[in-house]
Design a protein around this nucleic acid. Structure first.
Lengths: 241, 241
DNA sequence: GCCGGAAGAATGTGATCACAAATACCCGGC
DNA sequence: GCCGGGTATTTGTGATCACATTCTTCCGGC
């Protein structure tokens, strides 16, 4: 009997989808799929702060082996989304007043600029601008019903979708990456705070942002985004300290 | 003979230093040591853009096994310091005009704020303020001799040391992390540009920053840092486009 | 002399095992 | 009922192997 051939059991390689229809491009790369899904769950606020995580449990949950799970976890720890205790236990990062302060400053600096970039980038392109506005309006509409029904989960998800739809239109991957890292650290708390205090009604800011996008007013857009961030972070700050 | 016990050869666990004197705290964790060393090398501009990297070669270079090397590489790819080709080859990230633009904006937004935070944090603490100033002055002095002798390597190293000495005094880990990620993407180019164009004389900005720190002038400090960034990035931008 | 392609080496990724440390669990004593 | 301590389990980390691809190299045909 040959001594090798250890790879038989294999936790289902194709489980996470074979990259949809495009078998053309690169291989699946399981660990990126795991990372993407976990990141989305955190940004959308589906995991509460302090919730424990482990390499093996995450691997089991996603039906993959330990290796992709630990790589995804490693990345999220590096980005500040996950926290490691002194004894190397992993959990969703917890909030502190100091972190609220830092996140508020970083977000209010970067996100308005990203929004303005999206505006400027669609300057000559009426078609692209219209597409962006209609997509954001659609999300905003769904956001309204989430607020009306008090659906905290949907609200979190749609809120992040609203912001990133705008930010991604800026076509600025470095800034976007930085901002994503900040959302990874705020996401869990938005959800927690709203579960306690109820869904906020910041929709004014969203409407202002859409209006500014329509009129092409960069300053108004900046202010709308900034105010949205400040109000959201104040909510978190009030709950933390 | 027992069939297990495969771990014998082991690439020298204590090679990278047993964390100095503190055997009190947590275990060594080889992959963090590898990450820290590689990150420093990149920020200091010791690795030129496009330079190839591989898991196994990095492991061999640091006398560790493949596992810590790949974890360090994974993190640096996530932070934008390393680039992956379509065929999964790893290299030091290359620069594009668009990236220069983004990095300039992000850095001019974040770094001056970090500097001001360092200023504010040492407001009441005359002792801490003095220590900070003297440390920065000492680095600046060594920077002068590096400029005088045209030592590009030392210049890069000392320049990053100067900035991060200031930024770390802000005690703002989230902002610091974001800024480090940006330096990881600029480091290799500063070095390249200076190798071609020679060592720049931005020391004025450093002197202004120190002076602002002494006088407690936040606005002057902000401007000094901003100008230093803009001049440096313009140098890179001129070489890239 | 030059080109194309095949053989060989190298690479990223996934899987699995070993191990020390930390946590969880349980059981007996009071 | 509650606590303490010892055992069993879980955990992160490192090491090693397998494998499909990709890159390199070199050689034979023209």
């Amino acid at each position: 009997m040959p001594p090798n051939k250890k790879k038989s059991p294999s936790p289902l390689r194709g489980k996470l989808g074979n990259r949809g229809k495009s078998a053309v491009r690169r291989a699946p790369v399981i660990h990126e799929e795991v990372y993407a899904r976990l990141r989305r769950a955190i940004i959308d606020g589906q995991l509460e702060p302090g919730r424990a995580l482990s390499v093996r449990s995450l691997a089991a949950q996603f039906s993959v082996s330990a290796m992709p799970a630990r790589e995804a976890i490693r990345r999220l720890v590096a980005l500040g989304a996950l926290e490691m205790t002194a004894t190397r236990r992993i959990m969703i990062a917890r909030m502190t007043p100091a972190k609220v302060d830092e996140l508020t400053e970083a977000r209010t600096l970067l996100e308005p600029r990203l929004a303005v970039r999206a505006l400027k980038r669609t300057q000559g392109r009426a078609r692209a601008r219209k597409t962006l506005i209609s997509r954001m309006t659609a999300i905003d509409k769904r956001l309204d019903s989430a607020i009306a029904s008090g659906d905290v989960g949907s609200y979190s998800k749609l809120n992040s979708e609203f912001h990133f739809t705008l930010y991604e239109a800026a076509d600025a991957p470095i800034l976007l990456n930085a901002v994503e890292s900040l959302w990874l650290q705020t996401g869990p708390f938005m959800r927690t705070v709203m579960s306690n205090l109820g869904v906020p009604d910041f929709v004014d800011m969203h409407n202002d942002a859409i209006a500014a996008l329509k009129s092409g007013d960069a300053e108004e857009l900046e202010n709308a985004v900034r105010l949205d961030i400040i109000e959201g972070m104040q909510l978190i700050g009030g709950a933390v300290e």
